[in-house]
C-alpha cells in the first residue's frame, strides 16, 4: 500500500536528519526545476466558499505551489510523508486512520493547494501538529504536491455491499 520510496533514509542522528533530508529533497527539486523560487509568504483565504457574504475575498498574498504537478516532487513527498510520521496518523498512502483520508479528493479545510499548505504549515485544531517550523515552506509544498498527486479511488461516493 505504501508508495515505493526512492530516497532511503537511514540515520540514527534522528533530529538532525530531518533538515538533512529536506535539503536533499529541495536540492533535488531545484536541480530539476531551476526556474521556481520558493514562496515563503503565508497563504491568503483558506476557504473561498465561505466568503459569499462579503462578495469578494479580503486582500492577502497570492500563494501558489511552486511545484504543482511535478511528479519528481510528488515522489519525494511520498518519502517525506513517511519520514515525518504523517503516515502514522493518516495511514499508508494517506488512506486515513486516526487522521482523515487525504487521498479521497475531499478537504475539510478547503481544496486549494494553499489551504492544504496552511493545514500542514500551521496545524489544525483537532490535533494536526504544525510542521512549518520543522519543514519550512519548501518542505510543506513538497508534501502538498504529493497529496495532490494521489488519485481519488474510483468508487466514491457510493459504496456498494455484496453479501455472501
Amino acid at each position: 500500500m505504501r508508495p515505493q520510496r526512492t530516497l532511503s533514509w537511514r540515520s540514527s542522528a534522528a533530529r538532525w536528519a530531518v533538515p538533512a533530508l529536506l535539503g536533499l529533497v529541495v536540492a533535488g527539486s531545484r536541480g530539476a526545476t531551476p526556474t521556481h523560487a520558493p514562496v515563503i509568504a503565508a497563504p491568503g483565504v483558506a476557504n473561498p466558499a465561505h466568503i459569499a457574504a462579503g462578495g469578494r475575498p479580503p486582500p492577502g498574498p497570492v500563494v501558489q505551489n511552486p511545484y504543482r504537478g511535478e511528479p519528481a516532487i510528488a515522489h519525494a513527498g511520498a518519502t517525506l510523508f513517511v519520514s515525518m510520521h504523517c503516515s502514522d496518523c493518516h495511514a499508508d498512502a494517506a488512506a486515513g486512520a486516526v487522521g482523515p483520508n487525504l487521498g479521497d479528493g475531499r478537504w475539510r479545510y478547503g481544496a486549494s493547494d494553499a489551504a492544504v499548505f496552511r493545514s500542514i504549515y500551521y496545524g489544525r485544531p483537532r490535533g494536526m501538529p504544525a510542521f512549518g517550523g520543522l519543514l519550512g515552506a519548501q518542505g510543506v509544498w513538497v508534501l502538498v504536491t504529493y497529496l495532490r498527486s494521489l488519485p481519488p479511488p474510483p468508487d466514491l461516493p457510493t459504496e456498494r455491499f455484496t453479501q455472501h
Binding site: 505504501r2 540515520s11 534522528a14 519520514s83 510520521h85 503516515s87 502514522d88 496518523c89 501538529p129
Partner: peptide
C-alpha cells in the same frame, strides 16, 4: 518497520502492518 526519528508530539511508530 523502518528506522524513525523522534519528533515531539507526533507518532513514534514507523510501521506498515496489513
Amino acid at each position: 518497520v523502518h528506522q524513525i526519528a523522534y519528533i515531539k508530539g507526533t507518532p513514534y511508530m514507523g510501521v506498515s502492518s496489513p
